[in-house]
């Protein structure tokens, strides 16, 4: 009797364990496979990551209209102060051929660590924004996006025009007159084909080599506002929205570098 009871207990425990395992697999699903299967470890090691939207919130369309041009927003939930601020936001698109999409560095001068941009999504996937605050803690918010083929989608129809325009940049400010000592919204438009290196020419069997913006530095009066290392997930003609805090009138400046070493810069006078 005793033995059989132990046996049945053991069986139940095993069953429960199995159920828990499969239950976990169903709950987390394939959606977490890439993240748990290496991405997390690769980018953040064993560091604890708090999940939720208490520090940053990621917004993305559930179904992408154009997988090569998916608008996403990251909104911060804390102001950028000298004492406490978001230092970086890392953007990971789990099931993209290159999951690392960008890391964005902020300063207290950013005012608000908000960001918006357009990305390529190659398969049904989670997009994750992982924020690191200045005390070294990590916070993650994610959104699931249904899209396919964004990275292998054919290069925009007017590549010639795009190449001719490459490196042109313009700033757009939310208000004509800047509000001093407050976060002001700015938009940086970069003309660059941002070729992924995954688009193949079937006739020649040639892959168009990857050619994309790798670094973006935005400063105001030479103080960094937003510095980013970016990869092929950023859509053609990269477009970033962000905040900066002008203490006085001055110059907003963008310097970019692509993976072929081309450098471009542009600036915009800001007046209150």
């Amino acid at each position: 009797m005793k033995r059989s009871k132990t046996f049945s207990n053991g069986l139940w425990i095993a069953l429960a364990y199995l159920l828990a395992l499969t239950g976990f697999a169903f709950a987390a699903g394939e959606e977490e496979a890439a993240w748990n299967g290496g991405l997390r470890q690769k980018f953040f090691g064993d560091r604890p990551i708090e999940e939720g939207n208490q520090i940053v919130e990621l917004t993305a369309p559930y179904r992408a209209e154009d997988p090569a041009l998916v608008p996403i927003q990251i909104s911060s939930k804390i102001p950028q102060t000298k004492d406490r601020f978001i230092k970086t936001v890392t953007l990971i698109i789990d099931n993209n051929p290159v999951p690392f999409s960008g890391i964005f560095h902020f300063t207290p001068e950013s005012g608000k660590a908000d960001l918006a941009m357009r990305v390529r999504v190659n398969a049904y996937t989670h997009i994750r924004a992982i924020a690191e605050t200045n005390d070294g803690k990590l916070y993650m918010n994610k959104a699931f996006v249904k899209a396919s083929g964004g990275c292998s989608a054919p290069i925009g129809t007017d590549l010639e025009a795009a190449m001719a325009r490459m490196g042109k940049m313009k700033f757009k400010l939310d208000n004509e007159k800047a509000v001093l000592r407050q976060p002001n919204l700015a938009q940086l438009l970069i003309s660059h084909p941002n070729i992924t290196g995954l688009q193949m020419d079937q006739l020649t069997r040639m892959i168009k080599p990857a050619h994309f913006v790798e670094e973006v530095k935005v400063s105001f009066n030479d103080k960094p506002v937003l510095t980013a290392q970016t990869d092929i997930a950023i859509s053609a003609d990269p477009n970033f929205r962000f905040y900066f805090v002008p203490e006085t009138a001055g110059e907003l400046k963008a310097e970019i570098r692509d993976n072929k070493g081309n450098r471009f810069s542009a600036s915009q006078t800001v007046t209150p």
Binding site: G149, S152, P154, T157, Q199, D201, Q202, T204
Partner: peptide, 18 residues
């Protein structure tokens, strides 16, 4: 057209299959 076909074919083939 030839270039457009060449650039799109790999993507289109995947899409047709799917």
């Amino acid at each position: 057209l030839a270039e457009a076909m060449a650039m799109r074919a790999p993507f289109y083939r995947e899409k047709a299959e799917r």
